[in-house]
């Protein structure tokens, strides 16, 4: 049975959606503002994927943008080639993006998840750069992918509603996964892989599971991104895009869904807000202010804004809380 703890915030989220959607329908917001709102929702989905991999499972990834890109290209190709731009097929195109990203996540995850901490980060970084090079050269094999010229002619199918409900579905999925027994196994790998192994947890299986779920969410976000901006270029999925999302997950607080949501939305709004607030001649300062904000937040709150704390319906249930209380000294140590 759903308690009030879940129903009230769900109703609040729905209310926020209704207000924003009404504003959009009544044309109170311009196209640019709608795009930013939609992109914020996409970024939440994208960042939640990395939070599963790094925040909850502790597997350091510097190549998350590769899966974002794979999802984007796969779903764009499905829409363009298979369905010839038919809007009714949009869910299928998104599903294709998720499936491709998750499948490649599985194939890559199996060998490289044996690596630990920084070495895994470097291997995923290398993978991310390799995927970008492949996108750059893909037109030699599949001309429709456009290579370094970019993939054009994607129909604009992503609306605010699509992005919002995709993000909501991602939140529900991650919440239910993390507070299930599988989720506890995933978190135990982060806390201490050797101890988890000794307790009979199949660490390889759970590392791969987290990696596949995280890659799949990135693929979903990628598919939405492709059909929002209707143009894909390999440079949209370079190393800096992996860094952006890592930064959002860390700034929000590792292993906190609330933190990821706040940081993802905050990050998109900060970057776009500076564009509006700064006078024309200081527009170049935007990219100077943003790393400074990042450095200051890290120095003041090294564990991120939320530091592993959840709010409202994202808080763990009674059983998990009781278990956590028993484990307090183990959590929060260095990754």
């Amino acid at each position: 049975m759903l308690s009030r703890r879940i129903l009230l915030p769900a109703a609040a989220a729905l209310a926020v959606f209704v207000v924003l959607q009404t504003a959009i329908s009544a044309e109170l917001l311009n196209a640019y503002q709608i795009t930013i709102l939609t992109y914020a929702c996409i970024f939440v989905t994208y960042a939640l994927g990395l939070n599963v991999i790094y925040g909850y499972n502790g597997q350091f990834s510097l190549g998350h943008a590769a899966f974002y890109g794979i999802g984007a290209y796969a779903s764009a190709l499905v829409t363009k080639i298979v369905f010839q731009g038919n809007p009714l097929s949009f869910p299928l195109a998104l599903a294709a993006g998720v499936a491709t990203a998750a499948a490649i996540g599985y194939l890559i995850g199996l060998p490289i998840l044996r690596l630990r901490s920084d070495y895994l980060g470097i291997a995923t970084l290398g993978f991310g750069i390799m995927v970008k090079v492949l996108f750059d050269n893909a037109d030699k094999v599949i001309p429709a992918m456009g290579g370094a010229r970019g993939l054009t002619g994607i129909p604009k199918l992503t609306s605010f509603a699509w992005a919002f409900f995709a993000a909501a579905a991602a939140v529900i999925l991650v919440r239910n996964l993390i507070y299930s027994s599988h989720g506890r196994a995933i978190v135990s790998v982060r806390e201490d892989e050797i101890a988890a192994d000794a307790m009979g947890i199949n660490t390889t299986k759970y590392k791969t599971l987290a990696f596949v779920v995280g890659s799949g969410l990135a693929g979903l976000a990628g598919g939405l991104y492709a059909h929002l901006y209707v143009f894909l270029h390999p440079s949209n999925f370079d190393f800096l895009k992996s860094v952006d999302v890592l930064m959002v997950v860390v700034l929000g607080g590792l292993g906190s869904m609330t933190g990821t949501i706040i940081a993802a939305v905050g990050w998109v709004f900060l970057l776009e807000g500076l564009r509006i607030v700064l006078p024309q001649e200081f527009l170049d300062w935007r990219m100077v202010i943003y790393p400074l904000v990042m450095i200051i937040v890290m120095i003041l709150r090294p564990r991120g804004l939320m530091g592993g704390i959840e709010l409202g319906p994202l808080k763990p249930g009674k059983v998990v809380r009781r278990l956590k209380a028993a484990l307090v000294p183990a959590s929060g140590k260095e990754a």
Partner: peptide, 24 residues
């Protein structure tokens, strides 16, 4: 602090240096 905080700070310093030095 946790290692990742220093890493993110390093990335922040990197972006800062790149864009600060690109100012006219």
């Amino acid at each position: 602090a946790p290692k990742i905080a220093a890493l993110i700070t390093a990335i922040g310093v990197s972006i800062f240096l790149e864009y600060f030095t690109s100012l006219n």
